[in-house]
């Protein structure tokens, strides 16, 4: 389902096939998620620490 939806965006797969194969957008989104987890968890504990000062 999600796959269909996503491929819908790149209308002509043949034209930008090569570009798409070498894309690193997904990697950047994924590491962005890693950074978000790090920041959210750290800020949550920091907030708890400050609330208890």
């Amino acid at each position: 389902m999600a796959e269909k939806h996503l491929s819908h965006h790149s209308q002509s797969p043949e034209k930008n096939n090569n570009e798409d194969v070498n894309s690193m957008k997904g990697t950047m989104v994924s590491v962005g998620f890693v950074a978000a987890v790090i920041v959210v968890m750290w800020v949550a504990v920091f907030w708890l620490y400050m609330a208890r000062v």
């Binding site: 999600a2 796959e3 996503l6 491929s7 965006h9 790149s10 797969p13 798409d20 194969v21 070498n22 894309s23 690193m24 957008k25 997904g26 990697t27 989104v29 994924s30």
Partner: peptide, 15 residues
């Protein structure tokens, strides 16, 4: 991502 795209995964996270 590289492997998934070579197997035909498309879009941002299709891989």
């Amino acid at each position: 991502e590289r492997t998934g795209r070579q197997k035909g995964g498309r879009g941002l996270l299709g891989w």
